[in-house]
Amino acid sequence: MVRLTEQPSRYDDLEKKTVDELIRNINTENKIVALAIEKVLPEIGKLISAIERQLKNGGRMFYLGCGSGGRLAVLDVIELPNTYGIEKGIINVILAGGVQNLVFALEEKEDDEIEGWNSLQKENISPKDIVIGISASGITPFVLAALKKCRENGIPCGSIVNNPNSLISQYSDFPIEVITGPEFVTGSTRMKCGTAQKMIFDMISTTVLIRLGRVEGNRMVNARLINNKVVDRSVRMLMERNPQITDYEFAKEVIKKCGNVKKSEQYLKEQGWLSS
């Protein structure tokens, strides 16, 4: 298998370049990412539709990864309960070395062929769920071994890799191979590969949760009141969606009582302040 992610950079003598030259060239490489993703939008759509089906039928989604890709998945997933008001445990991450060790970057764990499947078993993984393996190289043992076990047990799988014709894709029902080419610093897949992974995570979580009814119009009507900024945003959202509510303090009181915009509107309808 050709590993484009390990091929030499298109640039050399980096230490001799000026700051302006370095950032201009990095930006040039970053422009490749969105175009590479555009080429695999149909595959991304198939994976998202599969996730939607599993979650609507009571299943869960698990990202499975290590290194930069695994850590980026953690960052995506931890935002979702507050942003969209979903329960924890619907969308999850199995990170090599454990999510609790996120900041320690236990890169050696990517060679562990047992931990991934063991961690999924501890979550009582079943064919109702779906697992998405993340690997820039497409051969990471931690991910590959777990996907093999998932296939043996009838658990649907997707994957996100950055090399063509990867082994991991062969054990995935919904493979995504987003080809971003050699990195600016040879082999540093936290760069374009990581950027591509983050962009795809955004697409997956945002689209799935819109499809599951967690957004109305273009607003986060189920966002939890985690700080003053979100309280103010929610109050203004409630007032904008319901122009008959003109008293900010009244709207704020209702928002704090109910917990989010969606629940506030339901409460106001029940009380006769809003028409059904």
Rank of each mutant, 00 (worst) to 15 (best):
S172M: 05
C157L: 09
F174A: 04
N153L: 04
V131A: 04
I134C: 03
K149G: 04
I210S: 11
S188F: 09
E216N: 14
K192C: 11
V208H: 01
V208G: 05
R190P: 11
T206F: 12
K149P: 00
M191L: 15
G133A: 05
V131M: 03
T140F: 00
S166M: 04
F142L: 09
R190Y: 09
G217R: 15
N162F: 13
Q197C: 13
V178M: 06
V185W: 02
N163G: 08
I168Y: 00
L144R: 00
V178F: 07
R151C: 03
T180I: 15
I168G: 01
T180R: 05
A196T: 13
I134H: 01
T195V: 14
G133L: 03
I125C: 06
S126Q: 04
V208I: 13
K148H: 02
N163A: 06
S135T: 14
G138I: 12
C157N: 08
N165F: 13
Q170T: 09
S205P: 04
Q197I: 13
P175Y: 00
V215I: 15
P182F: 07
V215L: 12
P164E: 04
C157G: 09
S188W: 04
G158F: 06
V178I: 14
I210D: 11
L212M: 12
E152N: 09
S169L: 05
N165A: 14
S126A: 11
F142M: 10
P175I: 03
T186I: 09
L144N: 01
T140H: 00
N165I: 11
I179T: 11
N165Y: 12
S169P: 10
S137A: 07
L144E: 01
I125E: 02
I130K: 01
F201Y: 15
V185R: 04
L167Q: 06
I125S: 03
N162K: 11
G154H: 08
G138C: 09
P156A: 11
K149C: 07
P182L: 08
A145K: 01
Q197W: 08
F184I: 14
D173V: 11
T207G: 10
V131W: 00
F201H: 15
F184D: 09
C193T: 15
R214C: 14
G138S: 09
I134D: 00
F184Y: 15
M203R: 08
V185H: 02
P182N: 08
R151W: 02
I155P: 09
Q170E: 12
I160G: 07
A146K: 00
